[in-house]
């Protein structure tokens, strides 16, 4: 019985916590971060690019779009954070189905690339040779 009461109390706490996440609270918490300049570098014209662009523009005032294969320190210089993305490997979400080889973007960054970067899915493997973020 004691466990049931505790579980119910914990459940109430979770609901209370969720209830405090109002749009106003988000707006206040996020205000200073809207100015973060975010560059999305992905598969040009793909469905993922569209989804990311729409999403990021809800939260950031400056959002850039780039072909991942064009990513370099020069193309990233005006941005605070880069999101590196590519395509489905299985023909999902409107991307073509691969035959015998993986879809690997022709891009690589060396130690001269010092911009913060978030690599989606398997993209870290392509970006940095022998990094710890790799499928091996």
């Amino acid at each position: 019985m004691k466990q049931l009461i505790l579980a119910a109390a914990a459940g109430s706490l979770l609901l209370a916590s969720a209830a405090t996440q109002t749009p106003d609270a988000d707006r206040t918490a996020w205000a200073e971060h809207r100015a973060t300049r975010v560059l999305y570098a992905g598969w040009p014209g793909g469905s993922r690019e569209k989804a990311f662009e729409a999403f990021l523009k809800q939260w950031f005032d400056r959002v850039g779009i780039l072909d991942l294969e064009q990513l370099s320190m020069a193309t990233a210089k005006d941005w605070d954070v880069v999101i590196a993305d590519w395509c489905s490997q299985y023909g999902n979400d409107g991307y073509q189905k691969r035959e015998n080889s993986l879809f690997s973007p022709k891009v690589g960054i060396d130690d001269g690339f010092t911009k913060p970067i978030i690599a989606m899915d398997y993209v870290s493997s392509s970006l940095r040779n022998r990094g710890k973020l790799d499928w091996l």
Partner: peptide
Amino acid sequence: AVAIGRQANMLQWGFYGGPD
């Protein structure tokens, strides 16, 4: 194994799903 993790200036978000 690491699904979400960081090495230096790179964060791996190892999940496929985009914002949609």
